[in-house]
């Protein structure tokens, strides 16, 4: 076979699945938008009332009529659905009922805080997990047991309990770390730790198992036979081998961090998507809930596409799949 054809096939083999995945991603977005749109129709009560500050606000009939017209509540469900899809396609997430603001800029403005928090937590969690896994795989049976125990307990810690416990110990009893974010780096320590510790528990478990498997594998044995130091074997061979399950875990870690951010941002009074979402849920601010859900869905899909591509790059076997 001629060389160019071969190359084209190779390219197609990478691009083909990626194109299919992109199509799938668009489908998922459409489905998420439709599910949320029709789901919120099930909410009892008048959305115009919600715009005017809820049933306790004693809004006048004129104001209600005005709002119904402005938000299109007086139109048929189909018209509203198509209008909603049209708006979403152009990136318009609608207008918050409660916050008197467009949802798009609001949600994007809150994105940074959450991304910073989640990214730092992910890094710290990896460092903690690596340190613990490396220590406990080399320290014999006792270290393995202690390591395993620590990981299970860490993974079981609810964010809200960890957060309040950290505040009591470090802010109230010891007075060494601020309980709220003040813009400085110290304000980030407790929220990041709260998110990172349970995640590290999970990552550590997976990582240690992969490490153990890797350390028993032929290539590590041969490296040992070549006379490489234990530390060299661990860091260069075993850890690299163990990185694959780690990459595939990132999508899950992302979801876990988003859930955690809801709690952490509320307790530590940090601006972010999680706090926005929780506020919107308690106020039944439907457009904001949809907006946050859509942004998270987009981020999640991007994340899976990325990890997928990364896995394919790291492990050539996957390209054939």
């Amino acid at each position: 076979m001629a060389e160019p054809v071969n190359r084209r096939r190779a390219v197609l083999r990478v691009i083909g699945p990626m194109a299919a995945r992109l199509g799938g991603a668009v489908f998922v977005l459409w489905a998420v938008a439709s599910i949320t749109f029709f789901a919120v129709r099930l909410i009892p009560g008048d959305p115009a009332q919600a715009v005017l500050g809820g049933p306790g606000s004693q809004a006048s009939p004129e104001a209600l009529a005005l709002v119904r017209n402005e938000y299109g509540f007086d139109q048929s469900v189909l018209v509203q659905y198509l209008a909603q899809l049209g708006r979403l396609a152009t990136g318009d997430l609608g207008r918050s009922y409660a916050l008197n603001q467009d949802v798009g800029p609001l949600v994007l403005g809150q994105l940074g805080g959450t991304v910073l928090l989640a990214a730092l937590a992910l890094v710290v969690a990896w460092l903690l997990a690596l340190a613990l896994a490396a220590w406990s795989t080399r320290g014999g049976l006792v270290a393995a047991r202690v390591g395993s125990g620590l990981e299970i307990v860490a993974a079981a810690l609810p964010h809200f309990w960890l957060a309040t416990s950290l505040i009591v110990v470090f802010s109230i009893w010891l007075g060494v770390l601020p309980p709220i974010s003040t813009g400085g780096a110290t304000g980030l320590v407790l929220p990041v730790l709260t998110l990172a510790v349970p995640l590290a528990g999970f990552l550590g478990q997976v990582l240690r198992e992969s490490l153990l498997t890797a350390l028993e594998s032929p290539f590590v044995l041969s490296a040992r036979a070549r006379g490489e130091s234990e530390r060299g074997v661990l860091w260069t061979h075993a850890l690299r081998h163990a990185s694959l399950p780690a990459i595939s875990l990132s999508g899950w870690a992302f979801g876990s961090l988003i859930s955690g951010a809801i709690v952490v941002e509320t307790i530590f009074a940090r601006p972010g998507l999680g706090r926005t979402l929780l506020n919107a849920v308690t106020l039944r601010d439907v457009p904001v809930v949809i907006g946050v859900v859509m942004i998270v869905a987009v981020a999640y899909i991007l994340m899976t596409l990325l990890t997928d591509a990364a896995s394919r790059l790291v492990d050539p076997r996957l390209r054939l799949a």
């Binding site: 998922v28 979801g255 876990s256 988003i258 809930v289 859900v293 998270v296």
Partner: peptide, 10 residues
């Protein structure tokens, strides 16, 4: 695409 608590909150 609704990770973690998101589906629950919705």
């Amino acid at each position: 695409a609704f990770p973690g608590l998101l589906l629950a909150l919705l």
